[in-house]
Simulated scan of single mutants.
Amino acid sequence: MTAQHTDLQRIMTALRQSGLTVEAVEDGALVQRGETRVALFTEADLQGGVIVRLHLDLDLYVEEDSLPDILMGMNLMNQGLDYGALNLDPVEPENADDDTPLTFAVLGRSVLWLRDLNAAELERLSEHLARFEAEVTEAVERTLHGGGGMRA
């Protein structure tokens, strides 16, 4: 078992003990908070500690002709986020030809460095995870239901 896998297992165990639903996926974990599922990935930091990457799929998709407006809105939204950022990832269409417009998924992303995996650092991860999910979700919902910022 690699150190990265061991770190991930320890983090998953700690999150489960804090009351979250956690399931292993390929090279990471899915953490469920209510209706929201955050993907969590770990890697060892060469200088010590563990880097934890969080990905929140918002089920929002944007076509490339809307990018100028979307990027401006995302930039404004990102200025108000403390625990993460909104990013665009290209979606690979199954049956696309050269004329098919590109589509991008809107994702929330965050990175947290843990000095080690002691109880205090794992508690800090749990709090960061909760704040990241709440902050990104609230920002997107406020924008979508507030009549402005982000249009697809």
Rank of each mutant, 00 (worst) to 15 (best):
1 M>L: 08
6 T>K: 10
6 T>E: 14
9 Q>M: 08
10 R>Y: 00
11 I>P: 03
11 I>T: 06
11 I>L: 06
12 M>V: 04
16 R>A: 11
16 R>T: 13
21 T>N: 03
21 T>V: 11
22 V>F: 04
23 E>A: 07
25 V>R: 12
26 E>P: 00
26 E>T: 08
27 D>V: 09
28 G>T: 07
28 G>C: 06
30 L>V: 05
31 V>W: 10
31 V>Q: 06
32 Q>C: 08
34 G>R: 07
36 T>W: 10
37 R>S: 14
37 R>E: 15
38 V>I: 15
39 A>M: 12
45 D>R: 12
45 D>E: 11
47 Q>Y: 09
48 G>P: 00
51 I>W: 13
52 V>I: 11
53 R>H: 13
53 R>P: 03
59 D>M: 08
61 Y>S: 05
62 V>R: 05
62 V>T: 03
62 V>C: 00
69 D>I: 02
71 L>I: 14
71 L>R: 10
72 M>C: 08
72 M>T: 14
73 G>Y: 05
73 G>H: 01
74 M>L: 15
77 M>L: 15
77 M>P: 01
80 G>R: 15
80 G>Y: 07
82 D>A: 09
82 D>E: 11
82 D>F: 10
84 G>F: 06
86 L>A: 06
87 N>E: 12
89 D>A: 12
95 N>K: 04
97 D>H: 07
98 D>K: 09
99 D>K: 10
100 T>Q: 10
101 P>A: 05
103 T>W: 02
106 V>S: 02
107 L>W: 09
108 G>T: 02
110 S>M: 02
112 L>I: 15
113 W>R: 14
114 L>W: 01
117 L>C: 01
118 N>P: 03
119 A>P: 02
119 A>V: 10
120 A>H: 03
122 L>E: 05
123 E>D: 15
124 R>D: 04
128 H>F: 09
129 L>C: 00
131 R>F: 14
133 E>G: 01
135 E>G: 08
137 T>N: 03
138 E>V: 13
139 A>W: 03
140 V>M: 14
142 R>Y: 03
143 T>R: 08
150 M>S: 09
